[in-house]
């Protein structure tokens, strides 16, 4: 009888541990939130992506619609190519959609914001967003500001 109590307690303990792991994986790491649904990837060129990380949010009107999947540099043009994974079927973004690198608060994480366009044509898998605006780098802004004052 006593052994049975022990077995039940240990069973409960192991179950709690496994629930803990699953919770940490799903709720905290956010695994599986994208995997289930269909998605496709598009690309965007930015002149500067300072501070943007893989897995950063892609949002439209403040709603998360995808993730950053890859950040590469194009040595020839000296700009950055960002691969974006967009949830849903291809065809939900127009071809003149704009992309902008934004910041959560003043010091928060960088993310990609999409600005809706009005064209009839839509972006397919592997297409590239043309209208982009890179990250605002504070040092550059201050530098420009100072030179403007000097004029």
């Amino acid at each position: 009888m006593r052994m049975r109590t022990i077995e039940i307690s240990v069973g409960g303990f192991v179950l709690a541990g496994v629930i803990g792991l699953v919770f940490l994986a799903v709720q905290v790491s956010g695994v599986g939130e994208l995997g289930e649904r269909t998605s496709y990837t598009i690309q965007a060129r930015f002149d500067d992506v300072a501070g943007l990380r893989e897995r950063a949010r892609v949002s439209m009107a403040g709603v998360t619609v995808g993730r950053v999947r890859g950040i590469d540099v194009d040595m020839q043009w000296g700009d950055a190519i960002v691969t974006l994974e967009i949830m849903g079927e291809p065809g939900n973004l127009t071809i003149d959609t704009g992309a902008k690198i934004l910041t959560d608060g003043v010091v928060g994480a960088r993310y990609v914001g999409l600005l809706p366009g009005s064209d009839e044509e839509t972006l397919g898998p592997g297409d590239e967003i043309v209208e982009t605006q890179g990250a605002l780098v504070l040092e550059n802004l201050i530098g420009e500001f100072l030179t403007n004052i000097g004029k």
């Binding site: 792991l21 994986a25 709720q27 905290v28 790491s29 956010g30 695994v31 949010r57 993310y111």
Partner: peptide, 19 residues
Amino acid sequence: FWSGMQDGVELWEDLGKGM
């Protein structure tokens, strides 16, 4: 709170290595 957490935490890099 949650989306910030899920954006910044990775399965292997953070949970896996911690384990």
